[in-house]
Design a protein around this nucleic acid. Structure first.
Lengths: 219, 219
DNA sequence: CCGGATCCCCAGGGATACTG
DNA sequence: CAGTATCCCTGGGGATCCGG
């Protein structure tokens, strides 16, 4: 990218990560740890392979990622965030939190991935009853699934399926994530086709940190 | 900007503010409050006026800024951040903090502005002796000047000159900001031409929140 | 002088095909 | 699987010009 030519830390940061796709590549590496080229391509629907290739070289040159040869069985290259790349997490989180406000409207053709289903609750919800016993919530949306684990006051989440979840949420990405992020209430989510089965009371334990509700019912 | 087409809050945030210059425009409005077109153009050295015009329209359409007619004496338009625009501050701060690591190297042709001199200490330093009496520090770099005020445990800063500062730092932007941000120590800053006059002990009161020092002397 | 609009040119990005 | 090569086209840089 062409430099902004400004002695300002924001401008210099954008000199490095301001290019198109760059921050999304960092997102993928942050959510998935070490990735092959194809994993990244898969997690970044819409990117052209030449662009991905170019960006990876730029990111390596800037010191944000490292290339390493994978162990023998799979002779391929793995990309991983360096310390400087990992240090972007707070900025990415802040941007993601701000971006929640744009998740309310539907865009049917948007791509969707399980890892994006997982990071939202992990980053933006807290356990309102930290001393309650552990619980497992299964999320399913658009064919992608993720698991939320409530344990010891922590909210963790990762892509995949749970064997015996206490609660299952299944619906459109907008319904599932909108509910978890506090953008819509349960009634609205149900109207959007959300299916809730299991211990519904667990929903009140999952507290979104954002207060982005449209001005409707105020407590 | 072309949408990324991903149902992910980071991607949707970048759909709105991922374009070139957009976040820097937000920076200016965040640092300077209401701005005229010309103020923005001045605070964004290098931007083409048509680009600025285009971005302002896009930002208004996205609901991040508002246009308002200024009071009669100056019949002009003022641009101001909306609530959604102001909500970007945490993300911008996080990005600015991350970007500090790229401020160490010199690029002589970089533009520099007083408001950038001011935001760094205001955002990224704390008063190590919050109960000590108030103090005023004058910063001068590259013809731009800003004032830091230590008072009641708060560190505030704004462009301009103080009438009777307790301490004056004068030098290259890299020397002044590098010292304040903890990127370089006083000795290095002095070698870079930093002039320090007044109550030097105030420097130890100004504590950078970042620990970006190159691996040298560890306490 | 302020607040843009217009024009031309080139670099950066998108899509697809192809190769080691 | 992991990229590279190619082509096309849009978006941005730079200068100049116009209306109020």
């Amino acid at each position: 990218m062409r430099s902004y030519g400004q002695y300002c830390s924001i401008a210099r940061a954008l000199d490095v990560v301001g290019d198109r796709w760059t921050l999304l590549i960092v997102r993928e590496l942050l959510l998935q740890d070490a990735c092959r080229f194809t994993d990244l391509k898969n997690g970044l629907p819409g990117i052209a392979p030449n662009l991905l290739s170019t960006r990876l070289k730029e990111l390596e040159a800037a010191g944000l990622i490292t290339r390493e040869d994978a162990p023998p069985p799979v002779a391929t290259v793995l990309y991983r965030l360096s310390e400087a790349g990992l240090a972007l997490e707070p900025a990415l989180k802040a941007l993601a939190l701000w971006g929640l406000r744009f998740m309310a409207d539907e865009r049917p053709d948007d791509a969707f991935r399980a890892s994006w289903l997982a990071y939202a609750p992990a980053w933006f919800t807290t356990d309102a009853e930290p001393d309650a016993p552990p619980a497992v919530i299964q999320l399913v949306a658009s064919g992608e699934s993720a698991v939320i684990e409530l344990r010891g006051g922590e909210v963790q989440a990762h892509p995949g399926r749970a064997t015996d979840p206490d609660l299952v949420l299944d619906g459109s990405p907008r319904a599932v994530l909108g509910l978890l992020n506090g953008l819509i209430d349960l009634e609205t989510a149900s109207r959007l086709g959300l299916s809730v089965s299991g211990r519904r009371e667990l929903l009140s334990r999952l507290r979104p940190i954002a207060q982005n509700q449209p001005p409707a019912s105020d407590a």
